[in-house]
Each structure stands twice: as structure tokens, then as C-alpha cells.
Design a binder for these strands. Structure first.
Lengths: 210, 210
DNA sequence: TATTCAAATGACTGACCAGTCAGTGCAATG
DNA sequence: CATTGCACTGACTGGTCAGTCATTTGAATA
């Protein structure tokens, strides 16, 4: 009731939510959305199923919260890192660096992101969708600045931004897909930067044009 | 029993299988794998549920058959079309042309392919996986020829092939994702070719290098 | 120590659905 | 006409699981 009481309550809520989301990511990652059960998540989090429903309204709710908390984190970290970079090339390198670091550090999250992308396409959860749009818009903004500064060719900004984000996703998907012939020491970050930057930058032998 | 009898039976089987797969694609596309029910597919195909199980062993079976019949078709058509193209640039253009035509012609199939990619990552259905590997390998072979002929930079062939295939997928995913700012008349085929070819070809100002 | 009440519990319910199988009807055969 | 075989049917079963709610727990307060 007092400020102290509120704080205590908030602390508990935050603690439980964190616990639940971490458990959810683990379970959703391991089994996929459909095969994951709420009981599994509860067991993993070390609470009863009913407790989950004190903090979230549905299985979907838990899923979206687990996914978008990480997405938001990644976006924020990207914005901070990019603010310290000068020039389009450095900014793109920075965006890739943050995304790759993030994905490498939390394989559970990437797996979930990749394998449940369809779930996102289908149910169109508002907050998560908005986050996706915001990320694409942010990158598109960087690209537009670069175009205005003559650092890259004129290309549709949003489409190009999404293509870049998708290439990162694709590189990680390669690891899961088990296609033979993918080299062991393959440096995805360098590969994506190289392919994208060469595809996008202005070559000296011909003018910028549309 | 006679040859005649066998032929009749085969004809019936082919007819039913075709009907079922078409219905399955429609239902899986509309609802996604999890939300689609076998009853829906049966109703759509105009047969009883039991009949489906005369031709396929499980819901998964139906799904994989529906997906890979189209994938195989696309791969075969690509191989034929590419055999008539000379030079790496023309071959890549041809690969893209076939894929885009295919995807544009059967939106159900793309949607299914994109939104249920996770299902593929997760359950690793052998025939479908092999088909995916074969498609990647085929494209990778073309790229390697191009590298040997000095038509493109030296890049990891399989990874590059998968990146190209993924860009096509990404362009179609953009349509479904509902991100604002994606231009109405956006030409995905030209965009992918342009970005990829520029990213990959040898620029005059610097040597090929690794 | 007694009281209070929010937090947590987990057994339970109702809906759902993949897969089954006993039965139907029809075309071919004797 | 009787018989056989087989494609087809759809009601049924067994199992699963999201979400609920009556009950318990334990920490804070009086």
C-alpha cells in the first residue's frame, strides 16, 4: 500500500515475469510453439501453472512477451551502438555486429525467432509487429541518410533494410537446416556485410542512378 | 489385376492424391499447420476423413507431400530453364525468373513455404530436407562454375546460394508482414537480382581475391 | 499469538482433434 | 442373380492441454 509496499510488489512481479519469460524461451525454443505446453513452462520456471496466469493471460501472451522482450532489447542496443558510428559503412557494420552478438549469445532466442517466424506472420501480434516495423524503419532511416550523403545507391529503403535483416536470419537458419557443404569456420557476419555492402555501395565505374 | 486394372487404379490414386494435396495446400495456407485440422482438409477435398488415411499416413505426411510436390516441380522447372542459359548472369536471372513466376502463380504455396519454414527446421522431414539440399546444391554448382570462369568473386558457394534463395523468400515475406513503407509497384525480382549480382560480381576497380 | 489477505497452488473441466475401424454401397466377376 | 472385393464413410475413442477456481500457505500486521 505504501510506496515501500508497491516497490516490493513491483519487485516480485518483475522477478516472476523474468523467471517465466526465461523458462518460456527455453521451452518454446526446444519444442516450438505448438508442442510446448504451459505445464512445461511452469515446471521449468519452478511455479504452478496457475501462477503463470497471474502474470499472463494466455499461452500466446507468454510467447509474445518472451519474444518481444528480447527484440526490444536488441533494438535498443542497436540504437545506442549506432549512435557512436560515423558513416554508413560503419553504421551497417555496427548493426550487424550487435545483431550477431545478440544471436550468438542467446541461441535459444534465434531459434525461436527463426522457427516461429510463421507464427508471427500469422497471428500479427500488435506489440511484436510494431517492434519489427520499428526495427525495419530505423535501419531504413540509416540507409536513406546514406543515400542522401551519396554513400550508397538509391534503392527502396524499407525493402533493402528488410533484406539485410533477413540475411542475418538466413545465416543462422543455415546452421539449423543441416545442409552439407556449409563450412565449419564460416564467418556469417563478414559474409553478410561483404555481400550486402558490395551490393549496395556506389561503384566507381558507373554513376549512382536509380 | 490386369494391366488395365492396374492403370485404372493408378489413375484413381493419382486423381485422389492430387485433389487431397490441393485441398491441403489451401487449408494449411489459410490456417497454418497447427490450426489446420484433418477434417478441414477432408471437407475441402470433398472426401471423408478416413479416405485421407487411405492415401497418407498422418497429418504430417499430408503436409510434407503437399509442400514437396511443389518444391520438386519448382526445382525441375529451374533445371530445365537454366540449361538454356549461357553465362552466370543469365543463369542467375533465370533461376530468379522461375522462382518468382512460381511464387507469384501460387500464392498459397509461398505462404505455406514461408510461414511453415519453422516446421521444416524442427521436424526435419527427410524427403523435403533432401529436396532443399538438392536445390541449394544445384545453385551452388552454378555459382562455382561462375567462379571458375571468373564471372564472380570467390565466395562460399553453398552459403551464397542459400542467401540468394532466402532473399527471394524474404521479398515475399515482406508482402505478408504488412510493414508500411513497402512500395506498391515494388519489383522484387529486379531488386533481388540487382542486390545479389552487384554483391557478387567482380568489380573492375579491385581484383577478385578471396 | 491471532488475524488478515494477497500470492500461489494443482486438481479439474471442457473442448478439441488425430487417427481408427466396423459398416455401406457399388462395380466387377462367376 | 449371387458373390466378392474394395474404395469409401463418418461416428467414435483415447489422449491432450489451455485455462479455471476452490483451497492452502505464509508473511505482514495488530
Amino acid at each position: 500500500m505504501t510506496l515501500q509496499g508497491k516497490t516490493r510488489r513491483q519487485a516480485l512481479t518483475e522477478f516472476r515475469e523474468g523467471e517465466i519469460l526465461e523458462a518460456a524461451r527455453k521451452v518454446f525454443c526446444e519444442h516450438g510453439f505448438a508442442a510446448a505446453t504451459v505445464d512445461m513452462i511452469a515446471a521449468e520456471a519452478g511455479v504452478a501453472k496457475g501462477t503463470l496466469y497471474l502474470y499472463y493471460n494466455s499461452k500466446d501472451d507468454i510467447f509474445w512477451a518472451a519474444l518481444s522482450s528480447r527484440l526490444r532489447e536488441m533494438l535498443e542496443r542497436t540504437k545506442v551502438a549506432v549512435s557512436g558510428a560515423v558513416g554508413l559503412e560503419a553504421k551497417i557494420r555496427t548493426v550487424l555486429k550487435v545483431r550477431f552478438e545478440f544471436f550468438r549469445a542467446d541461441e535459444q532466442f534465434v531459434r525461436m525467432y527463426i522457427t516461429e517466424f510463421g507464427h508471427l506472420c500469422r497471428t500479427k501480434n500488435r506489440p511484436t509487429h510494431d517492434l519489427y516495423v520499428e526495427a525495419a524503419g530505423f535501419l531504413a532511416g540509416l540507409l536513406e541518410e546514406g543515400m542522401a550523403a551519396g554513400e550508397m545507391r538509391r534503392l527502396p529503403p524499407v525493402e533493402t533494410a528488410m533484406a539485410l535483416m533477413d540475411m542475418v536470419k538466413a545465416v543462422f537458419a543455415m546452421k539449423f537446416s543441416g545442409v552439407p557443404g556449409v563450412a565449419e569456420g564460416f564467418d556469417g557476419e563478414q559474409f553478410v556485410f561483404d555481400l550486402f555492402w558490395n551490393g549496395v555501395r556506389i561503384r566507381k565505374e558507373e554513376p549512382a542512378h536509380a
